[in-house]
Design a protein around this nucleic acid. Structure first.
Lengths: 230, 230
DNA sequence: GCAAAAGTGTTGCTTATACACCCATGT
DNA sequence: ACATGGGTGTATAAGCAACACTTTTGC
């Protein structure tokens, strides 16, 4: 294979927007309305505009797709893809951002998000190299859950410890002991803050409500059970 | 601030090449021979060429700068920077790769690396936004040391447990207990493999020699001492 | 013998896991 | 009363830090 001189790229900012719905991890996908890959399912995204920085573009896209206002709990760059031929239109590099949002009402019709829908993490074929991108981003999310307080980004404030545990169970796909989980997260400095209020579930004892704490990393980490069993 | 339509970028692949020299973490820096920032110190790198993928370009740059042949122990993408105005030539996105190499003889004269030199991690002013890039990459390296077997990439094979410990101490900047460290890494499945041979240090008992093991992640992690003290 | 680095044993503390048990609500 | 989820106590096991101690070399 021969390689030539420098070449001009367009830069796409693509988003992996994760949430938890019905106790399952879900990702926001769109149906493409134009070529290439018209009619295919794909990750939401768009081109970086003149004068725009990457985080700005990611936030703009996120708002356009979700209608989410105000500040985003979690939005972080994951990785860049630029393999030759990954986009039939020509040289396009894709900078991928991972966003984590609470359970949203529904994709908003009448906006750019009209063709958007929440989808379970399965093996739906995706346009471009988006299947690989999605896989990489989910693995990143699973890993981040251990060391960073991103689980709270899945929850609307205020939330209960049970809500938070449901996030871990959905993203990791494993059941956790409610009692030990409770002790762990409440004793972890800066992870969650007691609001003093309570919420009454349909049945059972009222649960204390918490908000996100100031910590930016979790120490000690919330380890997922036996990741490498032989 | 106003933003315009999509714009064409050139894509630079920049490298943060780390090694340990004289018990200190060191990074390979070059002196720029051309504008912009002529005469400034900068990270090595170059433009992505037509038909080339990002990992290919990163490996090519690494070889050009270090003369390192064969396979690279560690070379991984860190992050992409594309802030407007970060390069006076125009829209340039920089995809940054982190490389970790063993102690190399010297920057090779007569190659692209003629202007290269190993430099301690200090506050030398760097061209473009390379100071920030370097800082991000080093933090990534420090963090990776805990969960991934990257420390072995700093060592020429075969190596002793003392060599490996010196890597951790240099990168983290903290002393570690030799006895506990020894037990920890030798009992960690897949991290290092006994070669059966020994090496005699200038003084002291001969040390068993090891090679890199097959593990791609370390479990349980090698935790650095108290990262967040209050 | 002595210095120096490698490697092992042991102890005491911290942390995790498993699970018994109690609490506070709706029906 | 009882089902349901929230939250605490506790015993056992696993892991880790500190450090005494032994091994094997060069001088």
């Amino acid at each position: 294979m021969t390689t030539g001189p420098p070449v001009a790229f367009h830069i796409a900012v693509d988003l992996v927007i994760l949430t938890v719905r019905d106790g399952m991890l879900a990702v926001l996908l769109i149906e493409r309305g134009q070529e290439p890959y018209r009619g295919w399912t794909a990750l939401p995204g768009g081109f970086l505009r003149d004068g725009e920085d990457l985080p700005q573009a990611a936030e703009r896209e996120l708002r356009e797709e979700t209608g989410l206002g105000g500040l985003t709990p979690y939005l972080e760059q994951v990785r860049t893809y630029a393999a030759p031929g990954r986009d039939p239109r020509g040289p396009v590099a894709s900078v991928v951002y991972l966003a984590i949002v609470p359970h949203l009402p529904n994709p908003v019709p009448g906006t750019d998000a009209a063709a958007a829908r929440w989808s379970a993490i399965d093996t739906t074929p995706l346009a471009f190299d988006h299947e690989r991108i999605l896989g990489d981003a989910i693995e990143q999310a699973r890993s981040q859950l251990e060391n960073r307080p991103v689980a709270t980004a899945f929850c609307r404030e205020p939330f209960t410890i049970g809500d938070l545990r449901a996030v871990y169970e959905a993203v990791w796909g494993v059941p956790l002991d409610p009692r030990n989980f409770h002790r762990k997260v409440t004793s972890l400095p800066g992870f969650v803050e007691d609001t003093g209020e309570v919420r009454c579930p349909p049945t059972g004892r009222p649960a204390t409500l918490y908000r996100r704490g100031p910590a930016t990393s979790l120490y000690p980490p919330v380890q997922r059970p036996t990741p490498n069993v032989d």
